[in-house]
Design a binder for these strands. Structure first.
Lengths: 143, 143
DNA sequence: GTGTTTGCAAAGTGTTTGCAATTTA
DNA sequence: TAAATTGCAAACACTTTGCAAACAC
């Protein structure tokens, strides 16, 4: 099976292993969701968009489970939550150091590589506080 | 009345004028809310915190009106909305160029002067998009 | 007076939770 | 079988809205 590195069976196996490594039982729902999230390139989803997607793929997963799974994946370090919109929560499969363009009208996020951007001059936080993370959101509009 | 530049009567008059200039009728509720928001230094409020505050001050304003007023003030350019938390909306009386520390646990925002911080290396947005604003949120934690 | 604004209560939206039934190991 | 997970429906927190009464000019 040397040449079948990306066969469906293999992907499922990889996904299963990945979930196990993260301490999550590879249930049908988690494997299916992980399949959508981690198979290809980096992705940005909301609970609803992911639920729509998996439903349209003919897989039955409740919205509540999608919410729970997104949080479990986030806690396991497989996803990162991105806060750019008061109305909904986005989850990013790219957990590395990077920032975002955000197109509010369409609810679209676009990654900006961490190396590209640099933030200088952040003052020391008030006494007793330490910097956890610096988030940059470049809000863009259709010209 | 030369020395009474900050008398209650004068403040009300200033507030009233300010609201008029923004095309907002100086109703009792708007004047009271504006009084809390704009009298002193820069402030960060949520609808609920502002409603609590004005209620504790003995002034009756419904929560719905606080929400409406915050949006009207924002639209008039007197406030700016700050998105740092998926759960609630913050409004900032500082409408100038600046950024924020955010202490998630306590829901506290602290201004960072715009001159202090600089963001370099923002890539050109994808074709058809223009940069509207660059928001920096420095998430901090108790040490 | 006339058009604006308010307040209430109801509706809305995205999200979380309690718990019985199901699934995993 | 024991423990973890799911799905449903109800509960939730925050926010918006419809409309009659109150208010500003």
């Amino acid at each position: 099976m040397a040449k079948a590195a990306r066969s469906a069976k293999n992907l499922t196996a990889q996904t299963t292993a990945r979930l196990r490594q993260s301490g999550l039982r590879p249930t049908r729902q988690r494997v299916e969701l992980a399949g959508l999230l981690f198979d290809d390139c980096d992705r940005h989803v909301t609970a609803e968009s992911l639920h729509d997607e998996i439903t349209k793929a003919g897989v039955k997963v409740s919205l509540a489970t999608v919410y729970n799974t997104l949080h479990q994946f986030t806690q396991a370090g497989l996803l990162r939550q991105v806060i750019v919109d008061a109305a909904r929560s986005y989850f990013d499969t790219n957990t590395g150091d990077h920032q975002h363009f955000f197109l509010e009208k369409e609810g679209m996020l676009i990654d900006i590589p961490g190396e590209a951007i640099s933030v200088a001059g952040v003052p020391n936080p008030p006494p007793g506080l330490t910097v956890d993370r610096v988030d940059v959101v470049v809000r863009v509009k259709r010209a």
